[in-house]
């Protein structure tokens, strides 16, 4: 079942001679229970795409359909309400409310959706236990490591049973080992809970946990990889190059350092 659909989506910043097309006529759809990695070098349009999928940005053209509703046509207020109900978020940084405990941060989405009851609270406890944070329930973000904070953000993104879960560079501030742990758990939960997940990442090593890789380049989808072996080889090649999209020339991935190029022959 399709949970999220982008239909001929274009985003243009500025007007006239200063107009820049950040996303150019992109279409994609994501099913429930599917975890998609949206990759590409800086300036490829993946963050703009994610912002539109999240309803944080209106497309200049095209439609973003979540739960059967075109969110691009909603008013600002309605989109905000829609985000709270149908979308779960994990950001690169500033994920958590600093004055709330780990448990309260997760409960926040339950309160927002009127689900802060006995069952909801129990679900929070179960999820945090599943993420290995049972002994950190009463700690505030400042008392937690980056990895722990990111896991709490994941719990918060999932607790209110959203249609779509979006993550923007969730491993950017983590070391390799923690990054793998976080994304692996994220992927497991998306599959277990049958959500549609999209993760924007620079780090192609994290692609080993996704079901499909969508690469963007210059605002367009330049490549889609769905084969598990191909994805695995991409992540492996990235592993050898210590990440991915690291060696660049003139704003584009250099051939020698591009894992996408490395796996081209698969």
């Amino acid at each position: 079942m399709i949970a999220l659909e982008a239909i001929n989506v274009t985003k243009i910043y500025g007007t006239g001679a200063n107009a820049i097309t950040a996303v150019d006529d992109v279409s994609l759809s994501i099913k429930r229970g599917e975890f998609v990695g949206l990759v590409g070098p800086s300036g490829s349009g993946k963050t703009t795409m994610l912002a539109m999928l999240a309803g944080l940005l209106k497309p200049s053209r095209g439609q973003i359909v979540i739960a059967g509703k075109d969110i691009g046509r909603m008013s600002e207020g309605k989109r905000t309400k829609f985000r709270g109900r149908y979308i779960g978020f994990a950001f690169q940084a500033n994920n958590l409310v600093p004055f709330l405990t780990a448990q309260e941060n997760v409960d926040l989405l339950l309160r927002l959706n009127g689900k802060f009851n006995r069952q909801g609270r129990q679900r929070t406890l179960d999820l945090l236990e599943r993420l290995g944070l049972s002994d950190r329930l009463q700690n505030r973000p400042g008392q937690l490591s980056g990895g722990q904070q990111q896991r709490i953000a994941i719990a918060r993104a999932l607790i209110h049973e959203p249609e779509v879960v979006l993550a923007d560079e969730p491993t950017a501030s983590l070391d390799t080992e923690r990054a793998h742990q976080v994304v692996q758990t994220f992927a497991e939960l998306i599959h277990e809970q049958n959500r549609a997940g999209v993760m924007v990442t620079h780090d192609l090593r994290m692609c080993k946990y996704v079901d499909r890789v969508i690469q963007m380049m210059d605002g367009k989808i330049s490549r889609v990889i769905t084969d598990a072996r191909e994805i695995s080889r991409l992540a492996g090649a990235a592993d050898e190059l210590d990440g991915g999209y690291v060696a660049r020339t003139n704003g584009k991935p250099a051939l020698a350092g591009d894992p996408m190029v490395a796996v081209q022959g698969i």
Partner: peptide
């Protein structure tokens, strides 16, 4: 600012 932006992003209204 960042915290408020995050809260708005996750669905808190103005």
């Amino acid at each position: 600012v960042a915290q408020i932006g995050m809260l708005k992003a996750i669905g808190l209204s103005n």
